[in-house]
């Protein structure tokens, strides 16, 4: 790290999260507001780690019913089956819908697992004041923000199928309890990522320099 690298926080400055104006908060500890756009100024997202953990733990808990309960039941005159997320993907694969099976596998299984692991890793590393590969960890955070939303795919598919097929006398599709749990997991992990402040990844580098 070269000596010229200074953060806004080190100089007691605050960058507005809405309009990006850098200004000095009013001393005295009360809430300060951006002089240009009026947003409340925070040097770091308030209670970032605590809030991020809270949403993440809730997501971990709901991840269990999301994967073990029934996501979707489909029935017709000749057959009836109930699928979890995983068995649904397997069924798509064995019935020959390979492309769809891969898309649903990525959106419903791979992304949620990787997202839970990634946010856990980010939070633990920040709490331990780690100085390990900050650039890579920032990239990981960006990736989580970018792809996390795509897990909502299955919720839209279940909605469309359940809505369209329910009126047919010969066939029925019903969303199971796992759909609600899975929707909650997606929302909770998104909230967890939104409350995480990537600047915390870089702060230990500056603390170390001062010592």
């Amino acid at each position: 790290m070269s000596a010229v690298e200074v953060t806004a926080a080190e100089l007691g400055l605050c960058s507005c999260h809405v309009c990006a104006l850098v200004s000095r908060p009013v001393p005295g500890g009360g809430p300060s507001h951006c002089s240009r756009c009026g947003s409340t100024l925070h040097s770091r997202k308030p209670a970032s780690v605590t809030r991020s953990w809270a949403f993440l733990i809730a997501a971990y808990i709901l991840y269990i019913p999301a994967n073990f309960m029934i996501m979707m039941s489909t029935g017709s005159l000749v057959s009836f089956r109930s699928d979890t997320i995983l068995s649904g993907v397997v069924y798509l694969w064995v019935t020959g819908f390979w492309a769809i099976a891969i898309i649903v596998f990525i959106a419903s299984i791979m992304i949620p697992i990787l997202k839970l692991i990634a946010i856990t890793l980010l939070l633990v590393s920040v709490q331990r004041n780690s100085t390990w590969r900050p650039e890579q960890r920032t990239k990981l955070y960006r990736l989580v923000e970018l792809v996390g939303r795509w897990s909502m795919l299955d919720i839209f598919v279940v909605t469309l199928l359940a809505a369209l097929v329910q009126m047919q006398s010969l066939a029925i599709v019903k969303a199971g309890p796992a759909a609600v749990a899975f929707g909650a997991v997606v929302v909770l992990t998104m909230l967890s990522a939104l409350y995480f402040d990537p600047r915390l990844i870089w702060d230990p580098l500056h603390k170390e320099r001062k010592l």
Partner: peptide
């Protein structure tokens, strides 16, 4: 030109 801070790492 104005000084800005990075929103992801806070560098000025």
């Amino acid at each position: 030109l104005p000084i800005i801070a990075c929103h992801e790492c806070d560098l000025l």
